[in-house]
Nucleic acid binder design. Structure first.
Ligand SMILES: [Mn+2]
Ligand SMILES: [Mn+2]
Ligand SMILES: [Zn+2]
Ligand SMILES: [Zn+2]
Lengths: 155, 155
DNA sequence: CTATAAGTGAGAATCACTATCGCTCGCGGG
DNA sequence: CCCGCGAGCGATAGTGATTCTCACTTATAG
């Protein structure tokens, strides 16, 4: 453990390396386009759509076909390396899923659509407890709070 | 106030009447197609997609244009008479939202896609508490648990 | 180095949903 | 009860995200 100079938070930078490793472990070839998608996801840390990733890459001079972006995201999702978030505005978004299980949930503003995030240990505990009591093999969960963001509610 | 003969539970049957009332209160005309949509939603009680509603009506001999179904759902959503649920499979689903605030959340099976539901007071309490602490005007929430349903996990 | 199949990407196809627009009809005023 | 008008309807065209196709490229096992 050397350069863990980051503060308390999430190992954002390491996620990309972890993802590449898992892709290889799962028997997938390495390719520049897919790696570029992984890199952009890792840099951002929170939700990004396929189009946003493609645009980011284009701005970077590394054009990647949109179909390839979708395929990379689908694969990453299958390997549980990303978390899908669908807030119902027609476009799905993805963010890195850390192997530690560390994660956050989202707040969506009903007026401006902006997405922010929060973490809450009590909420996680309630979900874990609940999941244990259900007749269901619970593997994951999504929580989305909706309302008005500070900017919109003060307006 | 006369026939409020409901028991403790969810006023599933009454919801349709309540919705009609709210629609009128909000200044909307009454029409057979829209009422038919409301009636189907009220009969079902849990999540239905626009297509499912249209199919149900067609089977019933009461054809309603798909555009009308979407419009009715949009309106009901604006009036907070239905709850939208988007589990990310490309189609949005709706279910009656009871004025009491009584509600449930959903379990989605990753293999068969089936949707079931649960209620949990502790979870609601955790969310309420959390919402109070956030710098955000929280108006609602969605919780989706994902995993394998009993049928799929035993297979 | 080569053969082979994974991966890519341009473009077509899907599919849920929205916008259009001429027609219908609920309903308030007379 | 009758009218007129705008809310509501529905067939259909349009939109935008995502998926499919297929010929081409390239990582990589042997
Ligand atoms: Mn959580
Ligand atoms: Mn709840
Ligand atoms: Zn906002
Ligand atoms: Zn199942």
């Amino acid at each position: 453990m050397k350069s863990e100079a980051r503060s308390v938070g999430l190992p954002t930078t390491d996620w990309a390396a972890h993802a590449e490793q898992e892709l290889k472990r799962a028997g997938h070839r390495s390719s520049a386009p897919r790696s570029a998608v992984v890199e952009v996801l890792g840099r951002q840390g929170c939700v990004l759509s396929a189009r946003e990733i493609a645009d980011e890459l284009r701005a970077d001079g590394r054009d990647v076909g949109i179909a390839t972006v979708y395929r990379a995201l689908e694969l990453l999702d299958e390997l549980h390396l990303v978390q899908r978030l669908d807030v119902g505005e027609g476009t799905v978004r993805y963010e890195p899923a850390h192997p530690s299980g560390e994660h956050h949930h989202h707040l969506v503003c009903d007026s401006c659509g902006r997405v922010s995030s929060f973490e809450d240990r009590d909420l996680e505990r309630a979900i874990a407890h609940l999941a244990g009591r259900l007749d269901y093999q619970v593997g994951g969960h999504d929580v989305v709070l909706r309302g008005a963001c500070p900017a919109c509610s003060s307006a």
